[in-house]
Write a protein that binds this DNA or RNA. Sequence first.
DNA 1: ATAGCCTTGAGG
DNA 2: CCTCAAGGCTAT
Length: 670
Amino acid sequence: MSLSGDLGISPVLLQAISSLTSSEGRQDKVPVKQERPSPRKMDNHQTSSKVVSHLLQGMNEPVSGLLAQSSSPSDLGQESDRLAAQAQKQEEVLLNAAIQERLASHLVMNQNRVITTTPAGNSVSAADVSMVNVLTALASQHMKANIKQEDSDAFTTIAHPTTATPTGASVVVRSSGDLQDDRPQPQIIIYYNNESGGSVPSPGNDVIVGELEGDGVQGSIQNYRVVMHHGDVASARVTAVSEQTVTEAAAAAVAATASPGTFVSGESNCAPDAAMTGNCPICGDKLSGYHYGVFTCESCKGFFKRTVQNKKSFQCHKTGECDINIYNRKKCPACRFSKCLNAGMRLEAIRQDRTRGGRSSYDGCSPHGKPRPSPLQRKVKRPSVGTSDEDSKVVAAPVLPGVDLFTAGEEGRSHRQLVAILNHSRPGQQAPDGEGQRVPELLTDIMNLEALLADDDIPQEGAAEDPNSEQAFYNYLMQLTELRLYKLVRWARNLPQFGAISTDDQIILLQNCWSDLLALGVCWRSISTPNVLSISTTRSISLQQAEALGFGDVVGRLLNMTQNLRRLHVDQYEYVALKVLLLITPDVKGLKEPSKIHEYQEKLSEALMEYTSTHYAQMPSKFGEMLLRLPELARISFIAKEILLVALPPTSPSCGLLVELLKGENAVKD
DNA sequence: ATAGCCTTGAGG
DNA sequence: CCTCAAGGCTAT
């Protein structure tokens, strides 16, 4: 007995999931050559069955291959050789001579060992190279999932020594391209620590991609942290959007990523003076010091301070991609401020009480390793719920354009209270042993599935159609959405523990959240393109364009949501956890085993809370704030669905799954 | 509003 | 003491 009839469940979705359920051990199956579904060619009668068969082909594809590069830390030892080979094959790992030389001399000075991987493989230690390759593969996978496709073939991976651990090895790996390239290179930085678990530089510019434990020198255990240098990635993306943005800004960015100057905190640890020789990552002016989490010039420091303190809101008069340099930095404060945030400047570094002097305490407040107690220590010291001290720090001042969630007065206060409650309603909270920077296994498992959602095969826009026509845009959007829906189902099916939920419940959950998930995906994709919604690697839409097409409201809300993700510094782990939280909702009507789902939800929210509280100890409101964004996401997707439904031709032969879901939902409502 | 310089003050 | 990252002041 199926629930599908009573609840208006999409028969396509039902069949897809049901068939999937019967094919247990799917990872071991011989892969069926995957063929992208092309439902637009089908007629109405055949749609469902053909869509299902295509979907199933896709579903049965083993995920192990896709996920092999991102094995869990515990598998790392056994897997490292195989992965290393894979990584080696996947990309020729070249070491840029200039960087190599500079780093080598630097490291020799610091009595560090240098590991280099070259095409010839004449490396220092085979084991170390294996580890480097594993990390490179991991980083590569991460980058490919996050960087626009045209950029994914050229990235830089740099590892840093930590001064506190003079025996730590360092690696610089570049996959392709070279420094002469005009474009700023996105960077992945691998911190390669020794076993002491000593301090790891954690500047605000960086996004921690992963933490690993693996074989180190002479059989010892080593801790590794893979960090993505956020600012660089962002600038690389923005540059990709506007082709003309090369010249000075790019040169400055390249200098910032490659020169010993801004080359990172690891370097600045050893030679603080060197950190001051580079250029401001915002405008290219002379650096004046470490301000609000980033080395910047005096003017950008002042600009950031004024903007945040005075709660200014700017609007870009162009497309939100203005080039910012020393000469035109006054022209577009909106883009300048965006660039500040993308470079990693911290809102929480601006003191709400305006006290002068002394030392700050936010995460990344110093370019030198960890001047402060560890998050774990701080957590122990943290005052109990509701103390005035805590309250005063709960919410960072909101300053982003068009987003002012914490205005003074009743509304702001109730919001703050809610945030405080959310953040402190953790019974018997347990801190992880040792370092507080561990990533819960549940989150890494979910992260590993991101490969299933990669935009590696987005539809090409029809050559015959005028790419600027409204119809062409709709067609493209529908095709893209359709493809993403298929991937979404496959992704959900492979989620840890989701398979243990009954098929009917799986369907209900998916049907409940598919549009929210798509909406959140678009926001995440747009995180480095302020004021522009990046629909795919090739398509983006501004608010003005959206207004012209009649869905300015939705795009405006999505842009606001994106700005919130940016403001909260939501990272990849948090993003993937939020997605699963959208899926795992025990309150949906009709579920057979809501308690099972509730259990899963609890585990996941605990994992996310642990992650956020340890990695962002200085943002105690972050966890609550993130959760508070989810209802708005549901509102947005609701409005979007209404629009789609109206826009849908009365008898739409295309887009099987999407149409099924949209119409099914409508049927339930009626 | 900007940006260069000044003052402050906790932590080393 | 000194350092340095915060906020403040003020000529432009």
